[in-house]
Design a protein around this nucleic acid. Structure first.
Lengths: 187, 187
DNA sequence: GCGTTCATGTAGCGAGCGCTACATAAAAAG
DNA sequence: CTTTTTATGTAGCGCTCGCTACATGAACGC
């Protein structure tokens, strides 16, 4: 049934991850997928629904990238390992898509608000789970995950402007901070 | 000389801070300023130059907002005070503009790359200076400023999606982290 | 076999976009 | 007084956009 639709959704996500969301236009996208704007609208109703679908697919991939990580040897390593994952090319594109959606202001309006709020929660959950698997106490993981997530987003945003060495050092500083706040033996 | 131009630049910045950069269109902007698209192009050459000017003006205001802060009583308070400043309505709009520019991918291309790189440096400097005025050792301030800035950007990004109480708690966690890493008596 | 639903192509609508050509009125320069 | 520069209005060009109207095969239920 929605077979063709699903194929198109995956392809559209690939396309948007590569070309960006902001200047997304139905006709070039359709051409890249070997179909027509007419058919995209037929399958997805309108452009907004298509974008919502794309965001969902992208977020699923991003979460999977985190969940597939092996546990790290300790909390400090967990932060740097997570950064390596998040700043990898495919993952970074997913995060960038999130930023673009945020910039579009689309996150505050339905039907995106609920979709994205849930996606964010799932993502934070995956992050927290990895921290737990790497030694943090379960009860402390959500707060740690929130701070780590915020810092990661900021660093990703600064990446094109900041020297890579500075970014790496900030990640190490963040790892130290997490360890000293929530690591074994603190508090 | 560039008198009229300067007035228009300020007005355009006000307008963009309120309406966003992504769907900026010359005709509505001109109408709001009591002029015409024709004149905007006359004064600024083309749309990109106008946008570059707007980004510069916005960043100047943002930096001024930080530099006008009184020193905080200690490092922990400095972080929360900075957050209060950064998340205030006017400042948050400036940061949002930065995010939109980043999302546009405009930050990586001239003539924005150099402009924004310098703006970012100035902004980090203002942040670092406030931390110093609030008790951190000068030599430690730049790294602290970088981490704080990244976390702030991430938190601003999450704000529409995250419960405010969680955001506030993350700010306090960040303040604790900065204090424990670079506060008096550490290392 | 026939009618109905599904899938797809063709063509175009109305609007907005950045930008330009051209004319012109005012001001400054000589 | 004339000439040049500066500032501004009018009109429109060429393009792209999301979306729709309409037609038409193809597949399927009865």
């Amino acid at each position: 049934m929605g077979d063709r639709r699903q194929v198109l959704a995956e392809g559209a996500t690939d396309y948007v991850l590569e070309h960006g969301l902001l200047d997304l236009s139905l006709r070039p996208l359709a051409a890249a997928l070997g179909t027509s704007d007419r058919m995209l609208l037929y399958h997805f109703g309108d452009k907004l629904s298509l974008v919502a679908t794309i965001l969902r697919v992208s977020n699923d991939r991003s979460v999977k990238g985190i969940r597939d990580l092996e546990p790290s040897v300790d909390l400090r390593a967990a932060v740097t390992d997570l950064w390596a994952a998040v700043s990898s090319p495919q993952q970074a594109r997913c995060q960038r898509l999130y930023v673009e959606a945020a910039a579009l202001g689309v996150l505050g309006t339905e039907p995106f608000a609920s979709v994205v709020a849930e996606a964010n929660e799932v993502w934070l959950g995956a992050l927290a789970d990895h921290l737990v698997a790497s030694g943090i106490r379960r009860s402390r993981a959500p707060r740690a995950a929130r701070l780590v997530e915020a810092a990661f987003m900021g660093l990703l945003l600064d990446e094109p402007v900041e020297p890579p060495a500075e970014v790496r050092r900030s990640v190490r500083d963040l790892a130290d901070a997490v360890t000293s706040l929530w690591g074994p033996g603190s508090r």
